[in-house]
Amino acid sequence: MANAKALKFFDCNCAFGPYRTRVFRFARTADELLGEMDFSNIEQALVYHTAMRFDHPVVGNERVVRESRGHSRLFPTWALLPSQTEEQPPLETLLREMRRQGVRALRLFPDDHRYFLDEITWGDQMAVFMERRIPLFIRASLDRIATLLRSFPDLVVVTGSQGSNPLDRYAWPLIERYPNLIFETSSYLVDGGIEEFCKRYSATRLIFGSGFPDNAGGAAMLTLARAEISDTDRRAIAWDNLCRLLEEASLP
């Protein structure tokens, strides 16, 4: 394969901002994150602010836009809440604001923010996201992702494919059933997993994520850089697939 130093990585899963618990090494600011990205050979990142998870989505969504402004390598995402509690603007307003602020993807943290991932909770919003192909980055177990996709089978959902143990016995049936389900690679560290996935399915269903600062920086990057796949597939996972997902998102 070609020299991996020349390969460009677009990271779909990384964060900056403070944590309430001890994190050995993290990026408090966008500038610090860019320094870490440079060190780990990562060119661009689709970022979230820790305040989106641990302060409040409304606070964090404002901060991620403000604090990443002027950094052309960082692309902000927003955290989403169920509509019933009216903590966020109505959906149409939210979508227009996303367009205005250059936000083209949303994140869901159902464990941190405590809501169900089902039709009862999301019936009023998910059909719109499905139709507009707005990518939803969801941090949840695969059985809960499956529950959501049973009601909204064409949603564009990006999630991790494993936790502490390799989860392909859970993941692959979902990949076969739901055409817009995509896995990010920050935790896809089962040996030979990327190779096997590309062979059985397609590189279009994987996108690169570092998991910074939850996971060790550089680890997922080197795994993809040295995976035994074609350079075309490698470029797709490292860069092209995420660009395509963001381009396909339709905002009013």
């Binding site: 464990d111 941090r139 949840a140 177990s141 695969l142 991790g160 936790g163 502490s164 143990n165 989860l167 935790s187 560290l189 998991g211 939850d214 996971n215 060790a216």
Partner: peptide
Amino acid sequence: QALDFSQM
């Protein structure tokens, strides 16, 4: 790897 047991 950050083990997020809630995701299992």
